[in-house]
Design a protein around this nucleic acid. Structure first.
Lengths: 214, 214
DNA sequence: CCGGAAAACAAACGTATGTTCGTTTAGCCG
DNA sequence: CGGCTAAACGAACATACGTTTGTTTTCCGG
């Protein structure tokens, strides 16, 4: 959530946030240095400290804001959809893909820079992520109870679906071959087919035992 | 340092590689420093340079070895499976999950430290990755032509499947609740259902338009 | 047992890094 | 216009980093 104040100092704070997102996404948090960030914003390195507490604190705030936005976007999507389990699941998945297309840089950071957070900072972020995951797990359980879905393990299925849908932010480029709507539709199809009751029987007995390496 | 070596100093080179994999996986390449790596191996920082060329060169070699192993494991799995398209696809997917369970640290590095590679080093790695992806795309196209699969866009489907299956290396811990076989089986089911000809019809018209942020 | 090569050592070099500090500039309110 | 506050400046500090160097130790074949 971004507050729109007319204040001038708040404007540089936002510029810092956006430049940081760009740089962290491009190079990673550890590889981004504050001199580069300051240059991108157009101020001196020391001036950053009028707006951030520390480099680590900046990352934490970016992640926190992002996770809050993701959670509230998800809740809004669920509230806007019919209460029926499959419609709720569909809404969750569609909003997930769309959000990841629109804010791929922040998503990328939130997913791959968790290890850069100090333990005390990682805890609340992880809690929010778990809350998000649990919402999906709950929907999958509802659908399974209603006989609309067939999943052997809802947690594994949730992780797998999230990984698949989150993957779009690693290759998506705005203005590419496919429109966001097409991408969302196709991922919805893959995801819903994957957990649908029309199950594909898989025998686990014939696995390739060919992982030998020197 | 009394080294209980059986043969030669090639053993320290291997120790460096393994320690590097562990540290890069835990902290990221940029956040890992050579003093820490040397301490982990039990030598002085400068001694590393008897075995590596530069820090960047170490990362490149790790990635190159990993990609070569992944590619040859994949080719071996395909060669061991029946030539029929669906069996080939199944073998590819199963071997992918299994490999990612067994060597999750290297996989994690190869996937998420590409941006730490200098451009000249990234190129051959990216080429190998594309070769791997293209193998899957080819199998999906074969299956679609044979009428066994229904995928709107094979490239998107391949990316989505790979993202889903690769996701296991972010949460899997050896000795956890589920055996590797169970994990492979369930992911196979999700993946094959997802692209199966028994398609779930998805209308793209009702998408949540709830991504507004002020 | 010896001599040469491979590898480890201790120490340093040059630079880059996050952060601090005292000072100066710019914007707003009365 | 005058004064207060927030923010930018420029310079520095202390440390951490990748890497190099000269020297010493370890290992193995002849």
């Amino acid at each position: 959530m971004a507050r729109i104040t007319g204040s001038n100092g708040e404007r540089t704070a936002e510029a810092i946030r956006q430049a940081a997102i760009r740089l962290i996404h491009r190079q990673g948090f550890a590889a981004m240095n504050l001199r580069e960030l300051a240059a991108e914003v157009g101020i001196q390195p020391g001036s950053l400290y009028n707006h951030i507490q520390t480099k680590q604190g900046l990352l934490f705030e970016l992640m926190q804001e992002h996770m809050q936005d993701l959670l509230s976007a998800m809740e809004a999507a669920l509230a806007a959809a019919p209460a029926e389990p499959m419609a709720q699941l569909r809404a969750f998945l569609a909003q997930h893909v769309l959000y990841h297309l629109e804010r791929k840089q922040e998503v990328y950071i939130a997913n791959f820079e968790l290890r850069a957070l100090e333990k005390a900072n990682a805890e609340p972020i992880l809690a929010m992520r778990r809350a998000y995951e649990n919402r999906l797990i709950g929907l999958l359980e509802e659908g399974a109870r209603a006989g609309k879905l067939q999943v052997a393990d809802t947690r594994i299925a949730a992780y797998a679906l999230l990984a698949m849908l989150t993957g779009v932010c690693t290759w998506y480029r705005p203005g590419g071959r496919l429109s966001p709507e097409e991408i969302v539709a196709q991922h919805l199809e893959l995801a819903l087919n994957g957990v649908s009751a029309a199950a594909f029987e898989c025998d686990t007995t014939v696995l390739p035992a060919t992982l030998g390496q020197a």
